[in-house]
Write a protein that binds this DNA or RNA. Structure first.
Length: 547
DNA sequence: AAGCTATAG
DNA sequence: ATTTCTATAGCTT
C-alpha cells in the first residue's frame, strides 16, 4: 500500500469549475450557486415560468421546452403531464395540471432530466438532482435516489395540503418529508445548534402519551420530535438557540427550516472567490526554522492560487497581432491573514484536551504580491520575511513555548477590477466605477512602477487620523513588461513537500538556522525497504503483523 | 477592520 | 467513521 500524504486538488477544482460553467450557461438569471466542489444550486424559475406560458393546454403530451428565449428551435420535446424521474412520495394522487406550482415542478423535473443528460453526453459526468421550490427542500430531496437519479418533492407548497387529501397543513407532504430527518441533518442546523436543540428536548420530562419517550431511551431527535414538542415555535427556539454570538432571529430561521421554509436566494455567479486560503496541519511544529519553511511553502501555494484564480488572459488582438499572452488581475485582495491553531498544553493527568480553536491576525496585502515579472521565489521570500514573520511574532510573542497543529494564510477583501465583473442591469455602473477608483487608488501603482518594499504594518496603523501614515509612495523599479508566461502553473498542492511529519532533534530546534536538511531516511533491517525515518515504526508493525 | 464562531463539502 | 483543507456568513469588539 502506498500511503500518500496530502492531495492534489487542482484537477478536481478544474473539473468542478468546468461543470459549473457548463450548468451556468443554461440559466437566464445567472443564479447559480456553488456549494463545495460537487454541488450546485440553480434557480430556474424564469426558464420554467416562461415555458409554462408556452404550454398548450390541449396538447400537453407533446410539449416543447425552450432553452433559449429568443430561439424557439433550441430545446427539447417532453410530456408536460408527468413528472420526469422519481417523486417524493412515490405514490400520489393525480397531478393537478391546473395548479401553477404543480406545473412548475413538472417543468423543473424535465429541465433537470435534460441537464443531466447533457452533462453526461457532453462532459461525461453523472449526477443526482433534487427538484423543489426552495434551496433547503431541493437539497434534502436531492439526497434520494443516488446515484444518477433525480427526485421531485411533490406538493412543496403550503396552501395545497388539501390537494393531496391532507386538510391539516400540519401534516402536509412537506412536513411529512421534513419530519423524517434527524434535526442535525437539516441544512443550516449544524453541530452546535442540533446539540442545543437535542439537549433541550431530551432533558425535558418524557411524554409517553405523545409517543415521545426520552430520558435515556432515545438519543436521536428528529424534526418531528422538535416540531411537536409542547410550546415549540420560533420563540422557544430563540430561547434555546439565541444568546450572545448567535445569529439574530435564529429562532425564526430555525423554525422555518424545520417546517421546510427557506426564502434565501440562490446566489448569482461569482467570478472571483471572496477568499483564498492555504493551510496545513502538523503533528509537531515548535521551531521557528520549521515555521519559516512552512510559511514559504504556504506562501508559494497561496501565490499560485492567486494566479490561477485572480489572473485573466487579456487578448490584445486589435491589429490581429499574435503577441504573447498577457495577464491581468481581475481582483485585488486587500487583507492578508495569518492564523494558527496552537496545540493546548498537557493536562495534569497527562491527557490532552483537543481544541480546534484558531487565532489569527491580519495586515494589508503588500504591493509586491501582485508583481508579475519577479520570479516567484523572490516574491515568496519577501512575503515571508517582511510580512509573515512579523505577523507570526505578533501572533506568538513567545519566542518558543508553542506547538502549532495548524498554520493558515489567506487573502480576503477582494476588490474586483472594473469592466468584467458580471454586473447585472440593476446596478449603478457609474457609481460603481467611482467607488472602485476610490478603493483601487492604493493599487494604482503598476507593475512597471512598483512601490518599494515596505515593512509589514498593521492595517489599523494606516487608517490613523493624522494621515501621516498614508501611503504616498513613488515607484522606483524599471519596467520589464508583464509577461508571466511560464510562471503560472495550476494547482497549489502539487508542490507541498512532506516536511510536516519530521520530528526535530534538540539542535534543530534553533532559531535562524539555515539547515538544508535532507529528509532522514532509514533502511528496513528485514526487507531492505528505504523510507523516511518517521515511517519506520509503522513499517515494523507491518512486519509484526505479517509474521 | 479585525478576530472569532458556526456551518458546509 | 474521522480528519483535513477549504470556503462563506454573521457576530462582537
Amino acid at each position: 500500500m502506498v500511503i500518500v500524504l496530502g492531495e492534489e486538488l487542482g484537477r478536481f477544482r478544474d473539473a468542478s469549475k468546468a461543470l459549473y460553467k457548463f450548468l451556468a450557461s443554461f440559466t437566464w438569471s445567472g443564479k447559480v450557486e456553488r456549494l463545495g466542489f460537487d454541488e450546485v444550486f440553480m434557480d430556474v424559475s424564469d426558464i420554467v415560468d416562461y415555458n409554462r406560458g408556452l404550454l398548450n393546454r390541449n396538447d400537453l403530451l407533446s410539449s416543447f421546452f425552450q432553452l433559449d428565449r429568443k430561439d424557439p428551435t433550441v430545446g427539447f420535446a417532453f410530456d408536460a403531464t408527468t413528472i420526469a424521474g422519481h417523486t417524493c412520495p412515490k405514490e400520489f394522487s393525480p397531478l393537478d395540471l391546473g395548479n401553477p406550482i404543480c406545473l412548475q415542478l413538472i417543468l423543473g423535473s424535465h429541465l433537470a432530466q435534460h441537464l443531466r443528460w447533457r452533462l453526461d453526453e457532453e462532459k461525461g459526468y453523472t449526477c443526482t438532482v433534487g427538484i423543489s421550490t426552495n434551496k433547503l427542500l431541493s437539497k434534502l430531496v436531492g439526497n434520494l435516489n443516488k446515484p444518477r437519479g433525480q427526485t421531485t418533492l411533490l406538493a412543496a407548497y403550503s396552501d395545497l395540503g388539501s390537494y393531496h387529501g391532507c386538510l391539516n397543513p400540519k401534516s402536509s407532504n412537506v412536513t411529512v418529508f421534513m419530519d423524517d430527518h434527524d434535526i442535525g441533518k437539516v441544512p443550516g442546523i449544524g453541530f452546535k445548534m442540533s446539540q442545543k436543540i437535542r439537549d433541550y428536548i431530551l432533558t425535558r420530562p418524557p411524554q409517553f402519551e405523545d409517543g415521545l419517550i426520552y430520558g435515556g431511551t432515545k438519543e436521536s431527535v428528529s424534526v418531528y420530535d422538535v416540531r411537536n414538542f409542547p410550546g415549540m415555535g420560533a420563540e422557544l427556539l430563540e430561547q434555546i438557540l439565541g444568546g450572545p454570538g448567535s445569529e439574530k432571529g435564529i429562532g425564526g430561521k430555525a423554525w422555518g427550516l424545520i417546517n421546510g421554509q427557506d426564502d434565501t436566494e440562490v446566489k448569482e455567479v461569482q467570478k472571483v472567490p471572496s477568499q483564498i486560503s492555504i493551510e496545513d496541519s502538523y503533528i509537531r511544529l515548535v521551531a521557528m526554522s520549521q515555521v519559516l519553511k512552512e510559511l514559504r511553502m504556504l506562501a508559494t501555494s497561496l501565490i499560485k492560487r492567486m494566479h490561477t484564480d485572480l489572473l485573466e488572459n487579456v487578448e490584445n488582438d486589435e491589429l490581429g497581432t499574435t503577441s504573447p499572452v498577457k495577464q491581468k488581475w481581475i481582483a485585488f485582495p486587500k487583507t492578508l491573514r495569518l492564523s494558527t491553531r496552537p496545540r493546548p498544553p498537557l493536562n495534569a493527568d497527562g491527557t490532552r484536551t483537543r481544541t480546534f480553536n484558531r487565532i489569527s491576525t491580519s495586515s494589508r496585502v503588500p504591493q509586491f504580491l501582485f508583481s508579475l515579472k519577479e520570479p516567484m521565489e523572490t516574491t515568496v521570500e519577501k512575503l515571508v520575511q517582511e510580512v509573515l514573520i512579523p505577523m507570526f511574532k505578533r501572533l506568538h510573542p513567545q519566542a518558543s513555548g508553542w506547538d502549532l497543529s495548524l498554520v493558515n494564510i489567506g487573502v480576503t477583501g477582494m476588490v474586483e477590477t472594473a469592466s468584467e465583473n458580471g454586473d447585472g442591469e440593476g446596478r449603478d455602473i457609474g457609481r460603481m466605477f467611482k467607488r472602485q477608483d476610490e478603493v483601487l487608488k492604493q493599487w494604482k501603482v503598476e507593475d512597471k512602477n512598483m512601490a518599494p518594499d515596505e515593512p509589514a504594518e498593521r492595517l489599523t496603523k494606516q487608517i490613523g487620523v493624522n494621515g501621516t501614515e498614508e501611503d504616498d509612495r513613488q515607484g522606483t523599479e524599471p519596467s520589464a513588461g508583464n509577461d508571466v508566461s511560464g510562471s503560472v502553473t495550476n494547482g497549489s498542492e502539487d508542490t507541498l513537500p512532506l516536511t510536516q511529519t519530521q520530528s526535530m532533534t534538540e539542535d534543530q530546534v534553533m532559531w535562524e538556522d539555515e539547515d538544508d536538511e535532507q529528509e532522514v531516511r532509514d533502511r528496513c533491517q528485514i526487507c531492505g525497504a528505504v523510507m523516511p525515518a518517521f515511517a519506520m515504526a509503522a513499517h515494523e508493525r507491518f512486519h509484526d503483523l505479517a509474521d
